[in-house]
Amino acid sequence: MTHDERPNDSAVTWELRDSLSALTVPGRPSLAAITSRGRARQRRRRAGFAGLGVTGAIAGTAVAVGLTGVLGASSLGGAGTIRTAAFTLTSNANGTDTLTLTAGQVFDPALLQRALAQRGIPALVKTDAWCSSSLAAPNPASIGVLAFSSPVKSSQGGLPALGFREQGRIGAHIVAVINPAKMPSGTGLFFGYYDRDHALSPNLIYTRSYTCVSGEQPPANG
């Protein structure tokens, strides 16, 4: 008891503290999981959150954009699963997120972009367009940003080295693990969705300067 409390208050204080000590709490997460989440937060802050207002400016021509902010992310990085018919995005305890694509479902790029933003992953998802940086960003698979649980064929080199498209169509249980902590500063994930093939190809781009070409697909050799 302190001088701020009356005698009867100390009984309440002890009761509160006893109840608090009696709580059964789960174990402490790893420091790496916390710092990974913190790094993702720092990246989001640096990238700015100007929203996801992607307009139709890319139609037909290559457009170079200083698009800091398009690859936005929400400020709420809570745990949980975001589930739509075409995909599921699950947040893992180690700070990664698992993206599972389901075959035969209508895929909505805007939904995936919002879901990734909600999980704190700066990303741009477009239909029938390919975005890349003039200064080539690292291959997302080779630096651990993306890992595929499903067997996905690698290309001969260049970008993208891995892609759902190379697997053919979006198949059942194609699973990619995204590790936002491995994303280099100033980069964001790009996913191009190609309606004709019902295929999705990933790329890593620098958010400050990249080019999107409408109607273009990923480099054939890449």
Binding site: P26, R37, G77
Partner: peptide
């Protein structure tokens, strides 16, 4: 975590909120 859980009444949510708060503290 104990303080957050006691105040919110939901251990699962408290665990996530506390982790988020520590991540923000780290950042």
């Amino acid at each position: 975590l104990r303080a957050v859980a006691a105040s919110s009444g939901n251990m699962t949510l408290a665990e996530d909120q506390t982790a988020e708060a520590f991540a923000r503290a780290w950042a």
